[in-house]
């Protein structure tokens, strides 16, 4: 009987350890004011569009591009719809012009917002396939990227970028390795 009681007590202690809390809890209610979280602005083009450009996007990065990895999520944070070739200007907002709907812009600071062009018909996430042609910057100095701050429930306006094909900005890190990054399949539904 002593053995039985010992085992029973041991068992109850183990189980009690697990019964002390409720596990996963819901997040507290958000204090965000109703509204759309995002940003908007206008991209203006000057000069002659380069030939062979297949894609032109406004791209938001969390931080400046310092390595090949930085052209990829999670540093790659948001992509605006492709801007038609030879446009003189393009007005956008991040809610209506989200090129990759899966990307969700969360509140925070984003330190490198650029307009980039690619000659590949399909979307590529390789740095070497892209040319930076305009930077969201301070006082028109494209070597000084300006930080975009996104607030919960608010749309940050005036995120304008001037692209001058005759005066391109400094190009950040370029890699040629073409590494593949591991990334899980975002399975939207079970197959069966």
């Amino acid at each position: 009987m002593k053995i039985f009681l010992s085992v029973l007590i041991f068992f109850i202690l183990i189980i009690a350890a697990g019964g002390c809390d409720k596990g996963i809890e819901p997040e507290p209610e958000s204090n965000a004011v109703p509204g759309q979280t995002g940003f908007s602005g206008k991209v203006t083009f000057a000069g002659t569009w380069p030939a062979n450009v297949k894609r032109t996007h406004l791209v938001v990065f969390k931080n400046a591009i310092a390595t090949s990895q930085d052209f990829f999520p999670p540093n790659l944070a948001f992509v605006i719809d492709s801007i038609p070739y030879r446009s003189s200007s393009f007005t956008y907002n991040s809610v209506d012009n989200n090129f990759i709907p899966m990307f969700v812009l969360t509140p925070g600071d984003y330190k490198y917002i650029v307009v980039a062009q690619s000659s590949t018909p399909a979307l590529s996430l390789e740095r070497k396939d892209w040319n930076i042609v305009g930077v969201y910057c301070i006082n028109g100095d494209q070597s000084q990227p300006r930080t975009l701050t996104i607030e919960n429930g608010k749309t940050t306006t005036g995120v304008d970028i001037n692209v001058n094909f005759s005066a391109p900005p400094p190009q950040p890190f370029i890699d040629v390795t073409g590494l593949i990054e591991q990334f899980a399949v975002p399975q939207q539904q079970k197959l069966f």
């Binding site: 399909a122 390789e126 399949v185």
Partner: peptide, 8 residues
Amino acid sequence: EPVLTKEA
């Protein structure tokens, strides 16, 4: 493993 390539 499933991955996201740089061709997106």
